[in-house]
Design a protein around this nucleic acid. Structure first.
Lengths: 263, 263
DNA sequence: TGACATCGCGTGGCTTAGCCACTTTAGCAT
DNA sequence: ATGCTAAAGTGGCTAAGCCACGCGATGTCA
């Protein structure tokens, strides 16, 4: 019996392959492959080709134009993972000097963390996790307090010095990992005395709490984090565009995407 | 199908009708209409039914399960930073009943508002603006306090009853406006006594503050708003990267995260 | 020559008809 | 009771074909 690796639906595989083409062979404004071309090139039915395209349209990558074709859309909503994930790059881009204070750095078994976290990381009790507590500062002023668990099997060689720098860099370069997405939940909270002390803020002052799970390419979780942002020093900025469907948007040139920036 | 003005593709109309059903007739966890049921009920082909469903799956509202059916996914009311959906629709999709308390409704000249607001709206001093203050509630519980200015020239016929309902609907349907995007800035703040009273919350409790500018198709500003979300009842959710389908996503309650002891 | 009407063609939108793989369920055989 | 089998239902996928739409080449007429 072949264990037969779980076979994903064709349109999802097609999805991934097409997504790679966007940005590689096709860039903003260009006409993308037509449904009939996809049929020939990938040996699928037109319905499947359309379903995959529709999915990319729904993601905001492409855009349908009735009677003309499918076009690559302005990446306004583009997965700006780099800037959202990498505090270091974000700070540097803003002309500031980032620094990191590593409070905790160790390895533990998944059974030692809250079940809810282990569940979201899709790990079994015996799996190993890195645990990191860090204070991130900009120009010496503490801005972010983060608590993070990383699935150790994906980056077994994580070093202390890497943990004191940019994790994003360690993942993408040293470990050759490709971060595909992240699930974020943002809330407003009040700082506890301990948290306030780390952030050099007053007790009971507001903060943004972000709980996020970072994902690799096949929806495999890489890390879980709870991050607190000092409300007076940090704000989130996002530019929304229509995602749903085939809004014309024929006039091409739109003002470029403004990446979120710390303040 | 019906003759009528069939300007939009069928699957998009179907999309909207199905989205209304989510939350009305179907809530979290339940099995949704099957493709074959949709075929009978709406007189469309199965391919079209599937396309509409796939779209809702891509939005995160539904979830495909191979060999079983389609299920409702969205457990709680959450503000999806990726999609521009109205509060009304969002609440209904979460299975709640939305209501609105109109505090202020009037028209004023742009010179009467703060210069930085007028600037972001790109209006001259003599232009007219609608001013609205509203408390939005879900199942009778106030969750949102919003302060909004709308450029009156784009929707001169705005009525009081429209202001008490869904502005999004009034814009897109009555005034035939096409909302193309929004610029948002998210912060954490503490509620002032006055704000806390409107939201039926305690003074000094945290809230999410969203300052946004809504844009029409050619980057023309339509409205400016400052909105406060009660932190204990509302969370922002943002999914970066592609949304795949086959995730069970069990559990996922809205219970607030409790920081681990120690530290 | 230039402005305008026409028509062909390729595109996505949509339908019909049908088979497949998967999952649950109910009933049958042991 | 237990375990197996078959049926029924689901989404996944293919095939073939018609339609409305937008564009551009072509042709017409002033």
């Amino acid at each position: 019996m072949d264990p037969e690796i779980v076979r994903d639906p064709v349109y999802q595989q097609l999805n991934q392959r097409l997504r790679l083409l966007v940005g590689r062979e096709y860039t903003f404004g260009q006409q993308f492959l037509t449904e009939r071309e996809i049929v020939q090139r990938f040996s699928v039915s037109r319905a499947t080709a359309n379903k995959a395209l529709a999915s990319l349209v729904s993601e905001g990558l492409l855009e349908f134009r009735k009677g003309i074709g499918t076009f690559v859309r302005q990446p306004a909503i583009s997965y700006d993972l780099r800037s959202l994930v990498s505090f270091t790059e974000k700070a540097r881009a803003a002309g500031k000097t980032p620094s990191t204070l590593l409070l905790t750095f160790g390895k533990l078994k998944a059974r030692e963390v809250e079940p809810r976290i282990a569940e979201r990381l899709q790990v079994t009790e015996s799996d190993l996790l890195w645990e990191l507590d860090r204070v991130r500062a900009v120009d010496g002023i503490p801005v972010i307090l983060e608590h993070r668990f990383v699935v150790a099997s994906h980056c077994p060689k994580l070093t202390r010095s890497q943990a004191e720098g940019s994790l994003y860099q360690a993942w993408t370069q040293t470990h050759q990992l490709s971060i595909a997405g992240a699930d974020e939940t943002v809330r407003a909270v009040l700082l506890t005395p301990e948290e306030a002390e780390h952030l050099n803020a007053s007790v009971g002052s507001p903060a943004l709490e972000v709980i996020a799970v970072g994902l690799l390419e096949t929806e495999i979780p890489l890390w879980w984090e709870r991050t607190l942002y000092r409300a007076d020093l940090y704000e989130f900025h996002s530019r929304l565009g229509p995602v749903q469907s085939a809004k014309p948007l024929r006039g091409q040139f739109v003002t470029p995407f403004q990446p979120p920036s710390g303040k």
